[in-house]
């Protein structure tokens, strides 16, 4: 009886720990997806601006849904993030290549985390079944011991 209760409490603790890991991985996937969308937006914007050419008038967001007018002065060069807080000046084509590469690594990281989520979720499902079975057995034994006392 004692070991049954302890098994249950250990399984519950393990399940809670697993659920925390899953939730952490899910929030990482969400962050990475937001970043992927930003890269998609940046690449589409560069393509669109390239079609329109230099001196295109644009509206630049200044926050809160507000904009100021601006003109694109240069389109042959872009300042591209290469990670670790570093930004490099590149030609438009090279810059786009770097962005695509970064997008690819983001996509791989998302895939990796999603696979981990699946694995942890399977473990959590197994544990949930064990917890339910242990809880049922414990209730049964407690009922039996109450019956025998009365």
């Amino acid at each position: 009886m004692a070991s049954l209760e302890e098994h249950l409490s250990r399984a519950v603790a393990e399940l809670q720990a697993l659920e925390r890991v899953i939730s952490d991985l899910q929030s990482r996937v969400t962050t990475l997806r937001v970043l992927m969308n930003e890269y998609d937006g940046a690449i589409s914007l560069l393509d669109e601006l390239k079609k329109r050419g230099e001196l295109t008038e644009v509206l630049v967001p200044i926050g809160g849904g507000n904009f100021i007018h601006a003109e694109v002065k240069k389109l042959d060069i872009v300042e591209v993030s290469i990670g670790a807080g570093i930004v490099l000046r590149k030609s438009l084509e090279d810059g786009k290549k770097i962005m695509e590469k970064r997008k690819e690594s983001l996509s791989k990281a998302i895939e990796l985390y999603e696979n981990q989520i699946i694995q942890y979720a399977q473990k959590a499902d197994e544990l949930r079944r064990i917890v339910n079975a242990l809880a049922a057995r414990l209730r049964e034994e407690q009922a039996k011991s109450q019956e025998s006392r009365s």
């Binding site: 300042e79 290469i82 990670g83 670790a84 570093i86 930004v87 490099l88």
Partner: peptide
């Protein structure tokens, strides 16, 4: 991985490349 990728990209660039740090 991010630091290694950035290092690789930086080393491929010419020495006089215009580079910024956040």
């Amino acid at each position: 991985i991010e630091v290694k990728d950035a290092l690789e990209e930086l080393q491929k660039s010419p020495d006089d490349v215009m580079v910024y740090k956040a």
